[in-house]
Design a protein around this nucleic acid. Structure first.
Lengths: 234, 234
DNA sequence: CCGACGGTTCGGCTCGCACCGAAGAGTCCC
DNA sequence: GGGACTCTTCGGTGCGAGCCGAACCGTCGG
């Protein structure tokens, strides 16, 4: 509430092209006069004065009056880091990633099979989280497995290496879990993990639906393999 | 130019209170539907839809259509860090911070620069210090030049005596140096010293602005004239 | 004291944009 | 297929904010 208006107020300081120009110029760490900044940005002295008033008032700049000059400077290294972080923000990709947009047919197919061969729900998310420290990368483009992750699958978990080779299916894929509202691991790796847990009797199906439950043996195995305590999943 | 408009465009995404609310809610890492966010922010579904279009288009969020729902999520951990950095921005302090850490570039400015028409920064202060034993008095009322000091200017430094006569401008004056937090020599004498050093090629301007650097010839000259080793200023 | 200069304040103009409601498209469930 | 639901698109409205020029103030130098 108040935090959101704070965030918006701070962002509003940088949302103007002229003020953004000022701040980028000041990123060199030096102090500039109001007139220099006005000339740089191509605005009148009065406009620059108003902008500087806002930037100083918002804590992004500090000022120092000396004689008839008004020197301004970035308020500190934190502000510089903030600006650099914003400037470094990558351009959004023009075309939408394929995995995010499904055709009608594949959507229907996804609906029927969603989470069918891999684990979902709190258990799926918890396993995904536990894997995040063991070779599963959560990138903005989706999930990816490192060599360490593959070694974990073929080693401790015991997935035959040839089962991880597939002509077309991606190894790791993010699947949005709509009870948890977070992504869980899908793709070939997700399916193989589910295979192993079922085959080892660590997880078994409940009833005719897709619900699964962790067995006592599975609880122990997950604690050993992933330091995951499934009894705390509620 | 293009970087400043990029920065402004990105900041503009967060400059609206409603969009800021969305982003803060999404900071929990989960995926939210458009309707949930609309209700949270207290705006209509149509308004929320437009906002989400901008946030996704700007690369801050990624979306995932599932059925009739539109799930959105922060685009990645980098975006989350960016947001946290912004909300962590401290309220502007009324009084100026005691010391500002400087970037590499501002360090150059701290080393030497001109202030109006005289030298400032570490170089200006060092020259002032060196002159203190050669006819510059540092009194409680400010700086003053003795006859010895005037002789040094017109003799070894080579300032034409008539250039030291001015109807009203004080010969020696103290100017507070904002990087060194000490006074350096200003006034007519300070200006003439700066003139000579520039004219002799002992100091030259760096870039288009006020930063200056001592040349090799200047290093030698200052050692001879003032027993000042400028290589130790850094 | 005067002129030059840097910066500020103020009135007024214009344009962008956040907002809504209504209509429409797509999806789900019965 | 029908009805409920979610989201999107599209006019239309009103407020906020950036911009300028003119007048003004304080400082500097002669």
């Amino acid at each position: 509430m108040s935090r959101s208006s704070d965030l918006a107020a701070l962002a509003r300081l940088l949302a103007d092209d002229t003020r953004a120009r000022f701040c980028l110029a000041l990123l060199d760490g030096r102090a500039w006069t109001a007139g220099e900044l006005a000339a740089l940005a191509g605005v009148s002295a009065s406009t620059a004065s108003e902008h500087l008033g806002k930037l100083v008032g918002g804590g992004l700049l500090v000022e120092r009056r000396q004689g008839r000059h008004r020197y301004v400077q970035l308020a500190g290294p934190r502000v510089a880091e903030l600006l650099e972080g914003l400037v470094a923000h990558p351009e959004p990709v023009r075309e939408r990633p394929v995995s995010l947009r499904m055709s009608r047919v594949s959507a229907a197919l996804a609906r029927g099979r969603t989470c069918y061969d891999h684990l979902a729900g709190r258990l799926g998310v918890a396993i995904t989280d536990a894997l995040a420290g063991r070779g599963l990368l959560d990138t903005s483009a989706g999930f990816a497995l490192t060599g360490e992750g593959v070694d974990w699958l073929t080693g401790p978990l015991g997935v035959p290496p040839e089962d991880l080779r597939s002509s077309r299916r991606p190894l790791a894929k993010a699947c949005l879990d709509w009870t948890e509202r977070r992504s869980h691991l899908a793709g070939l790796a997700g399916a193989r993990i589910c295979d192993r847990l079922l085959a080892n009797g660590w997880v078994k199906r409940v009833g005719t639906h897709r619900a699964v439950a962790v067995t006592p043996a599975g609880t122990e195995a997950l604690r050993t393999l992933l330091a995951l305590d499934v009894t705390r999943l509620q």
